[in-house]
Computed example of a mutant assay.
Amino acid sequence: MNHATNPADGTRIRFTTAGSEDRPCVLLVHGSALSSAVWRGFGYVKTLSRDFHLVMPDLRGHGRSDTPHGEDAYAMDAIVGDLLAVLDAVKVHRAHYVGYSFGARAGLALAVTAPERLSSLSLLGGSARPQRGAMDAMFFPDSADVLEREGMDGFVRAWEKQRRSPVDQATRSAFLENDARALAAYFRRSDREPGIDDETLESLALPVLAVAGSEDHLRVEDTRALSRTVSGARLAILRGVDHAETVAAALPAVETFLAARARRS
């Protein structure tokens, strides 16, 4: 496990790597309440490390990275700073980016802030829209309050009551390793994120793959809108898949997209 330090506030970001360093780099960024472990759990490392150098950070407040408890520590510009620090730490100027949910939103912000650092952008269950109410809609009402009051165990129990199926073991394990107070602060700050306007999205000039499950009622329409706004973006709708299932189900589409980008580079 390696680490990078965000120079703006000293937050330490842990990350792992896989695959040969002489291959094109792919930055894989997980979603809310998860960690970089999901990329192994759902087969991305096994599938992609043959052809790519994979760099997999734990976002601040998640996994083994630092877990500040102040809400403003989770502003999107801080997250972007973390990702740039990771790329600097591995001495990679340009990387392909794959982000799920929160990681997809962070990827869009990174693409707007530092487009020269990205070769392509794969967005799984992502959104460029304002996020007010999104966490409660994704999980359950008053989710931040439950995190603070009942911890991660209570959060997972409450979430399962809202789902159509039990939480898979890889996701459950990642959730339970989190700091509940840090996650609550992130949830509350995320609720204030303004999103990215269409004019800014239209200015993006890199290959984009936008993926969502047909049953991801929170994000599928946002993903469709994103694919229409970003010039040349490719859209993949995964039939019968909800938001939590998207990260696993998207792997074939991501593999095909990255392989095509690598051949052209």
Results as ranks from 00 to 15, higher is better:
M76W: 07
I79Q: 14
I79E: 07
I79D: 03
V80L: 03
V80C: 12
V80E: 11
V80Y: 06
G81W: 04
G81M: 00
D82W: 01
L83W: 05
L83F: 10
L83D: 12
L83Y: 12
A85T: 13
A85E: 15
A85Y: 12
V86K: 13
V86I: 11
V86E: 14
V86W: 13
L87A: 04
D88Q: 05
D88L: 04
A89F: 11
A89R: 13
A89K: 09
A89C: 09
A89S: 15
A89W: 09
V90M: 06
V90G: 00
V90R: 04
V90E: 01
V90Q: 06
K91N: 15
K91D: 15
V92D: 02
V92C: 12
V92M: 11
H93S: 15
H93I: 05
H93K: 09
H93V: 14
H93L: 15
H93C: 14
R94C: 06
R94N: 06
R94V: 11
R94S: 10
R94P: 11
A95L: 01
A95N: 01
A95C: 03
A95Y: 05
A95M: 05
H96V: 03
H96I: 03
H96S: 15
H96D: 15
H96L: 07
H96Q: 08
Y97G: 09
Y97T: 14
Y97W: 14
V98A: 13
V98Q: 10
V98M: 06
V98F: 04
V98W: 00
V98K: 01
G99P: 09
G99Q: 13
G99F: 12
G99A: 15
Y100S: 08
S101W: 11
S101K: 00
S101Y: 10
S101N: 13
S101H: 12
F102M: 15
F102R: 14
F102P: 09
G103D: 10
G103L: 10
A104K: 06
A104T: 04
R105T: 14
R105S: 12
R105I: 14
G107W: 13
G107R: 02
G107E: 06
G107N: 07
G107I: 06
L108Y: 03
L108M: 14
L108H: 08
L108K: 02
A109I: 00
A109C: 01
L110N: 13
L110T: 13
L110K: 12
A111R: 02
A111T: 02
A111W: 02
A111L: 01
V112M: 06
V112K: 07
V112S: 05
V112A: 07
V112F: 08
T113H: 12
T113W: 04
A114D: 00
A114E: 08
A114Q: 06
A114T: 09
A114Y: 07
P115T: 13
P115G: 06
P115V: 12
P115N: 11
E116R: 05
E116D: 13
R117W: 06
R117Q: 05
R117N: 10
L118S: 06
L118R: 03
L118I: 11
S119W: 02
S119N: 00
S119C: 14
S119V: 01
S120L: 02
S120F: 10
S120Q: 00
S120T: 07
S120R: 12
L121Q: 03
L121T: 10
L121G: 07
L121W: 09
L121C: 14
L121V: 11
L121D: 03
S122R: 11
S122P: 04
